[in-house]
Structure formats: C-alpha cells, structure tokens
Design a protein around this nucleic acid. Structure first.
Lengths: 270, 270
DNA sequence: GAGGATACTTTACGCCATAAGGAGTTGTGC
DNA sequence: GCACAACTCCTTATGGCGTAAAGTATCCTC
C-alpha cells in the first residue's frame, strides 16, 4: 500500500541534489559555518543511512527516527541537514540511480564522422538491464512515486547515457522522446512487478513458483467462471509456458525486444 | 512523496474484490446476517466515498477518518466492512479501472474464421487512450504501488480487452506477454508524468508551460555546466520543439507508436 | 572572556491506523 | 413476551509518525 504524503519542497530538493559536497556546512540557507560545534553528520551520511534502512527493512520501516537511530542521533538531528523526509527520499532516489554505469564516453564513430553502430540494440539492452538490476537491488525506489520527477544529477545522467546508446539509431527528436519515455517506464514497471513477486514470496516464506500457484488457485476458486470470462488470459497463461519462476525475466527480455523492434522501425522509417 | 506502509492482507482483498454484491451481509468471514441491526453502509458505498475523497482532495487526504466523515460515521465504523486501509485502496483501484470500456465482444473475423483486421493498431490505441484518460481522471491510482498487483476483476478485464485488441496481430505467446506488459507499463508511467506536471502546475497556480520554464531555469542555475554535462539531453530539449504544454500528449502518442511498430515487427517476424 | 552561531536534545502537538471494549438495535427460539 | 445472540457503530486508548518549539552544550570570533 502506498500513501501520497504531501509534496515536500522540490525547490529545496533540487538545491541539495545539485549542491554537491563543496558546501562548507550542511545546506541550510543562511549559514556561514564559521562558529558553532563541528557537524557530526552530513547529508551524505544521512542519505546512506536512509538507504541502509530501506534496503534492510523496506520502505515501511523508513522513518526519521529509524535513520537517526542508525546514526546514533535523534530524529530531530536530521533536520539540521535535510528539510524533511520528502527531500531525504529524493536524495536517496538519486543516490540509488548513481550506481548506474555511465557507459562509454563516445559512441562508435564511422568514417563519415557520424556516430555509427549496428549494435545500439546491445547498448540499449545493457542500459536497460543495468537499470532493471538497480531497481531490484533497491526495490524501495519503486515506491517513491514517479509522479515526483525531481531531476537529480544521477537520473539525468542515466537519461544521457540512454540517449548516447540510442544515438546510432538516429531517431528524429520526436520519436526519440517517445522511445526514451517508453523504455524508462517499461523498465521501471517491469522491475516493480518482479520486485513484488519476490517480495511477496519472501514474506510468506515460499518460492516464487509456489506463490504464483497459490495465487492462481485462489483466483480460480473465487471466480468460478474465470476461463469463460477471460478466455484469452487463460489461454495465454497456460500457453507457451516458461517456467513461472523465469517469467519475469522473460517478460523483461521480450518486452524489451518489442520496444527495440519499434525503435528500429522508427530508425528505418526516418 | 510516497511511503510503503505494509502489505495488508491480499487474501482478504481478493475475497472482497471478487465477492460481488450478492453477499447477504458485508464481507466478514463468519457472518450470517440473520440478526442485528441493518447495516447502514456497504462496501460499495465506502469505496465510492474513498474515491470521492481521493478525487477531490488527493491521496494525502485519504484517511479512514475522512472516508468515515463523508459517510457520516466514524473511522472505526468502516472496519465492519473492510479489513483495513490497504484493502480499501485495492478496492478503489479496481473500481477506478472498472470505468474502462470493455471493447467489442468479438474481434473482426475473416473468411477463414481466424480473427483478422489490419486495424489492431487502432484498437490498441483506443485501449491505451482509455486507460491513460482513466488514470488522469483518478491520478491517485498512480500512487497505489503497482508493486501490489491484486488482480481485481476490472484489472483483468482490461487485460482481456487488450488481448482481444491484439488478437489480429497473432503474436506468439511469449511476445504477446512482453507486448502486454510493455504497453501497460508505458501507459501507466506516461500518465504518471502527465499527472505530476498538471498537479505541480495547479498546486503552484501556474500554467504547465510556466512551470516547466521555471523548472528549467532553476536547473540551469544550479548546474552551470549543464549543457556540457548533458549535451544530448540539452539538444533534445531544444530540438524539434513541440509546445511544452503538448509535450506530454506528444510523448504518449509517439511512445505508443514506437511500441506498436515493435509489435508489428513481431507479428511479421512470426 | 563575552556573545553569537551552530549541533543536537527533549518535549510536545496533531495526525494516523487500528485494537479493545461497550452501547444500542435487531432478529431467533423459547 | 422475553432472554439471548448477532450485529452495527461508538468511545477510548495505544503506539506509531513527521516535525514545530524551545532548551542545552559546543565552538569560533571579537
């Protein structure tokens, strides 16, 4: 379950995200830092602690008190460094994405000087797999509403990497925007489904496969005319069956293939 | 900001989702309903009230108290009908999706008896636009984590509709699964972005366009070497410029076109 | 050494979901 | 007609949450 809890100050988030580590003191507006006790914490340390809590115990357990505890402070101590929880989440989000590889600096270049490479498919696939893996390493990121695009440096860097990978396909700008959006949303959504399957299975102490079986059985029991009501779904579920435990991986691979085919068509069609 | 707040009982959600209105009394396990005062509420009424609150005041304002107030009851009265807030959200989610049109019962059939129709693109486009519009009518649905796929009847019906629309493309099952996932995630993700843009603009009392301008200006100010660091992004943003206020619509259309091209390629390639 | 800025703590407020128990209402079986 | 069980709905209470407000201890500047 997810609750939207009021926006937080995106303005402040942006400052913190882009402020960098060079600020003499933690990022509150009018602070000189010439006097007073040395800060014992830092924004970075708080973000790390937050990620540690979320990785270990899930988003539900991520409270300001929990983060403070992990640092040997009270919850209120964090407010010296970070305006509030919403902004902390924004920072955690971008820090998680910062694990993504930057990719090669230069795309392959042909004799005509233009970027060239039949293998933009491989490059985009690599990008997508890296993002997918990152989401699965930090599933809590998927509960931070994508409806709050704060545009941190790591997120933008990831988009830039994708654009670089797509460069050889030479898409017209409009198509390029569409493709980038579709790819990003696809990876995120697919990762969310995978994360949930794993999480639910782990929480109930059952294998992924057994969990799916239990779910299906229960559905069939509750909706007796299931096959009559949803014939195509029923057919699809039984048909061409991959091992259910590999189904998520498969959905990722083939969905991505569909997207890449679409991009290829755009490239060809100009 | 979004918080994952503990799973709730998916088992109970499923019962409520599929139980239908034919249960003699609200859906608690061992109730006969032969005695006691007549129920003044119903699961349906509670779900409607929840949707009304969320539509009018957003997910942040959706509390059990708020829902109870709207029905002239206390928060605790709801627990007679619904096990908890998580399950209520599941019900609200499925009810929102129930607004989607079911689509024609039969796909067009050719002389060979197989479903046929060059216009599966139109059908899928129609499906995607309907889902997109539904999400924008109820943006709070997008904050319910997709990482809790409870599989209500309306959600499954929407998938069935999509499968029916895709039938003429005659995709192999593996590809079909990939395509369905990609389409769904794409619509959801794109709708989330649009919803956020509108929401943020509305909250600050500014047009979408001005909001984007302010955002860009602030980014440029905070990251002085922006263009050097993200050359492709910078280029893409300026290039081929649609009116920024139409950009979301455009991203939806062209992203969908990319997906459809990919599906067409799969159909051709068998 | 005084004074001010700063880090961090304690306390408190108003929310939240919901557990526990009680009051009033309705039907059933005697 | 009456006791009782079933049921709805309420009040109260618990333990969480984010964070405002105010206090204390630390350190630098003058």
């Amino acid at each position: 379950m997810v609750v939207y809890a009021g926006q937080g100050d995106a303005h402040r988030s942006l400052s913190l995200l882009w402020g960098g580590p060079d600020q003499p003191r933690p990022g509150r507006p009018g602070r000189t830092g010439r006097t007073g006790p040395k800060p014992g914490l830092s924004v970075d340390a708080i973000v790390s602690a937050g990620i540690a809590v979320a990785d270990a115990e899930g988003m539900a357990a991520l409270s300001m008190r929990a983060v403070g505890d992990r640092l040997g402070r009270t919850a209120m101590a964090l407010y010296t460094y970070v305006p509030g929880k919403a902004e902390l989440l924004d920072l955690m989000h971008d820090r998680a994405l910062a694990e993504l590889p930057a990719g090669p600096d230069e795309p392959p270049v042909g004799p005509d000087g233009l970027p060239v490479g039949p293998d933009w498919r491989a490059a985009v696939t690599g990008w997508a797999e890296a993002l997918y893996a990152c989401y699965l390493r930090h599933p809590w990121v998927l509960q931070i509403s994508q409806a709050r695009p704060v545009l941190g440096p790591a997120e933008l860097a990831a988009m830039e990497t994708l654009l670089r990978a797509l460069q050889p396909a030479a898409l017209p700008p409009q198509r390029l925007r569409g493709a980038v959006g579709a790819l990003w949303q696809f990876v995120r959504g697919t990762a969310a489904v995978t994360a949930e399957t794993r999480g639910a299975a782990a929480a109930t102490g059952v294998t992924d496969e057994d969990w799916w079986l239990a779910r299906s059985a229960r559905l069939a029991e509750l909706a007796p005319h299931f096959t009559a009501r949803f014939p195509l779904l029923t057919a699809l579920q039984s048909e061409g069956g991959a091992d259910p435990r590999e189904r998520d991986q498969e959905a990722f691979r083939t969905g991505l293939a569909v997207l890449l085919d679409g991009i290829a068509a755009s490239a060809a069609g100009g």
